[in-house]
Design a protein around this nucleic acid. Structure first.
Lengths: 335, 335
DNA sequence: CTGTTAGCGCCTTCAG
DNA sequence: CTGAAGGCGCTAACAG
């Protein structure tokens, strides 16, 4: 790997001049610029970004931290983040926190010297942790999926409870009253908000909440499958299932299918996310779209803006949207 | 962000001493070490990794480059890579090449100063490009999924053709002769090797290759769906479909289901990957497992080893394994 | 227009 | 056991 000095020698100029042509700063005579360029090309020279960063205190990279590399919206999120970053000519450095809050916290602090801004999509850190981070960090941080009443940091959030309300209303409108619910982890704001959505919708419809219809899942297909099986084993009475994401809804669908129960004729199912796979199952899954791509775009673009200029903290809010497909139908009246 | 100088002042020692306690090198009196530590803690000091890297020419990070963030095995690969890296106390920096060979090439070169080793999972770069890279790079590179006859670089590969042979034999054993094939991109070694597997299996069974039974896909569900629809529209005669990955197989399954064709009673389907979603479809998809997790582990661990010591290039080979589920059954004789 | 001179934050001989 | 000094590769005033 050749350095700037090699270029200097070959082109017969000083470091300053080479630096000028690298960065397009200052005035350089065209002939010497050409000289420098050809020297660079001949050597296959590439400026060392670490050295550049150290000298300028600018890394031109944004850090993306997720709690886990198999999180729910992981793929779409990364893809969009990469696209947005490249568009702005920024490097993207991606890290996961192994689902461990302490580790994740440390990772973010470590990143401080390596990025100009951070985008965080955490499901392990508490709101308090995030606030602490925000104060401690000298670089801006944009938080996805956290929605604090006071706007203490930049955030891009999704109205979780409202999304569940949408789902419930769709079911209620179709005459369902016995609605089972497969939740996600209940140790973070997302799970809690969604559960509130479920309970409040029930309350609004004057339907008593039944603990036996509530099952815990972990956002993956298998846990949706298992949750549904336990619902079945307990012979609970339900005409519909709402799951806190599409994967679990799909897992439940599988369990129902195995048990010889028809969806949606006998039981309706609705999920949330609009996962790309959802429309390839039979029946095609009805769901509420979570605009993760748009949210990611917003977050990364905001982070990139914040690399160069500061802005007052603001919360960008997104909402769900019902996508009607084939897994929900009006409840059949019992004979 | 405090620097080493701040610690020096607070602890009343020189940079050298602080550096020693940071790195645990050299001898430091216990009392002064404690002093330094408490100064660091008080300041919330964290060594600047960029500066460390510049000074030592060691980054303690390995770079992972994939062609695209929605590549096939993307999630599992990242998750395992992150786990392996953390285990070895290395940072992982992940980048994608936006499916553009030139961009990807450039990205890798750029990474040279930022990592101690690179793991590459490319589907856009040619073997020649990779060789060129290997020669140009001063850091080691481990290539996943390329298998050159001569071992010109470190690689972890999968016997693509053999995997397809497994799939075909399973179908042939079940009496299928009219076997449609949904391929992936044909501009890279993987696609070519797999197609060879298909054609050679046909030849071994003395079944003529029919161009009309061959459809191109792009490894996603939608393209599998479309390929199957076009097969159907052309009224091709087939009793089985082999797809070059599970996603496309699942897309084809959907197309068949929509057309009122029973799987596997009327048409058998087999995929490759053993994608986690495959066993949640109905029928559960028969497939050949591609051990991407094991391969990734091998590749990253190798890369980490190469950070500190050089080794002669070697190719680690992996094979597929048939996973029989429910989407294949013996062909029915025509009435 | 170009070169000289200091750093960026850290590590690492080499003396003491 | 500790400090002073130089350097990693690059940028950024400041002269000229």
């Amino acid at each position: 790997m050749s350095t700037i000095l090699d270029v200097c020698k070959l082109a017969g100029v000083s470091k300053a001049t080479v630096s000028r042509v690298i960065n397009g700063t200052g005035q350089v005579k065209e002939s010497t610029r050409d000289n420098v360029f050809s020297a660079m090309k001949e050597l296959g020279y590439r400026p060392n970004r670490l050295a550049q960063a150290l000298a300028t205190n600018k890394t031109h990279t944004v850090g993306l931290v997720v709690s886990d590399f198999d999180g729910i919206h992981f793929g779409l999120l990364l893809k969009q983040a990469a696209a947005s970053a490249e568009l702005a000519n920024k490097q993207l450095i991606v890290t996961d926190g192994h689902n461990d809050p302490a580790y994740e916290y440390e990772v973010i602090l470590q990143l401080e010297a390596q990025c100009d801004a951070i985008v965080l999509y955490s499901r392990t850190l508490t709101d308090d942790h995030i606030q602490l981070l925000h104060k401690q960090l000298t670089i801006p941080i944009v938080v996805i999926n956290r929605d604090l009443p006071e706007q203490l940091f930049h955030s891009v959030s999704f109205q979780q409870e409202n999304a569940v309300t949408l789902m419930m209303n769709h079911l209620l409108t179709n005459g369902h009253k016995d609605i089972a619910c497969i939740t996600g982890h209940m140790n973070n704001p997302t799970g809690i908000a969604r559960l509130n959505g479920y309970k409040n919708a029930l309350k609004s419809a004057s339907i008593p909440f039944q603990k036996s219809l509530l099952k815990n899942g972990h956002y993956d297909m298998k846990s949706g499958y298992q949750a549904c099986q336990s619902l079945l084993k307990e012979k609970s009475n339900f005409t519909a299932i709402i799951a806190f994401n599409d994967c679990m809804a799909l897992g439940a669908l599988r369990a129902l299918t195995e048990a010889g129960i028809n969806v949606p004729e006998q039981v309706s199912i609705i999920g949330i996310d609009d996962d790309p796979v959802s429309e390839f199952f039979t029946p095609r899954l009805t769901t509420v779209k979570l605009p993760i791509v748009e949210m990611t775009k917003q977050a990364v673009e905001l982070a990139i803006t914040l690399c160069d200029e500061s802005k007052p903290t603001h919360s960008y809010q997104y909402q769900g949207e019902l996508i009607q497909r084939e897994s929900v139908m009006p409840v059949k009246l019992k004979a």
